[in-house]
Amino acid sequence: MSGLKKKRRIQIVALAAVALLISTGLIGYAMRDGINFFRAPSQIIAEPPGPNEVFRIGGLVEEGSIVRGQGETVRFSVTDGGASIPVVYTGVLPDLFSENEGMVGTGRLIDGVFEASEILAKHDETYMPAEVIDALKEQGIYKDPKAEGADS
């Protein structure tokens, strides 16, 4: 009788372990396309990703670089102060998208041009994504708007 209980307990533990492994595998499989790594333009120049790798780029929209093409196609450059990457996006840009403002885009680097599938811009006057702030601080060109407001 005692041996039967022990055997049943081992079966339940083994079944739970298999179920845990399967569920972990399914979660990993579902998330494989949902994880996009952030890269600053300087990092992209230093270590270019493959053409099939989807990632996020962020920085400031370079002044004078916005060129509107046919239809909804827009070309511009994004910079972190150390490097600049040309970007192509087809679609409607966010209302607050403008030159010298922070942006984050999702897409791929193909032949040296970042082909964006999504563009995000700041959502108010002072907000900038944390990844963009970190990249700009690393290049030494980030200015805290709160500190600037305290001077005046």
Rank of each mutant, 00 (worst) to 15 (best):
K5R: 12
T90A: 11
L109Y: 03
T79S: 14
N52M: 12
Y127K: 04
N52E: 15
F114V: 04
M1W: 14
R56L: 12
I35G: 03
I44V: 15
P94Q: 07
D95S: 09
E131T: 10
G64D: 05
P49T: 08
A147G: 02
L20H: 08
A40R: 01
K143N: 06
S84D: 11
F76N: 00
L15Q: 14
A46W: 06
M128C: 05
K6I: 13
I57H: 00
G91S: 11
G112R: 09
G91T: 10
I35A: 07
Y89Q: 05
P94F: 05
P86T: 07
A135Q: 03
A17T: 15
I10R: 15
E53N: 09
K122W: 02
L4D: 12
R39Q: 14
F55M: 08
D80K: 02
Y127F: 14
P51T: 07
G91E: 09
V61P: 01
P86A: 12
A147R: 10
K122C: 02
V74T: 15
I35N: 09
T126C: 00
R56N: 12
P145V: 00
Y142K: 02
V104Q: 10
K5D: 11
V87K: 01
I141A: 06
G107T: 07
P145W: 09
F37V: 13
N36Q: 15
F38R: 12
R108C: 00
T79E: 03
D134R: 09
R56P: 01
E47Q: 12
M31V: 13
F97D: 05
N100Y: 11
S98T: 06
G82M: 06
E63K: 12
G149P: 00
Y89V: 02
V113C: 05
A83K: 03
L136Q: 04
L120Q: 13
V67D: 06
Y89P: 02
G107E: 04
R68D: 07
R39I: 05
P48N: 07
R32M: 13
A135G: 03
G25I: 12
F55C: 05
E63V: 09
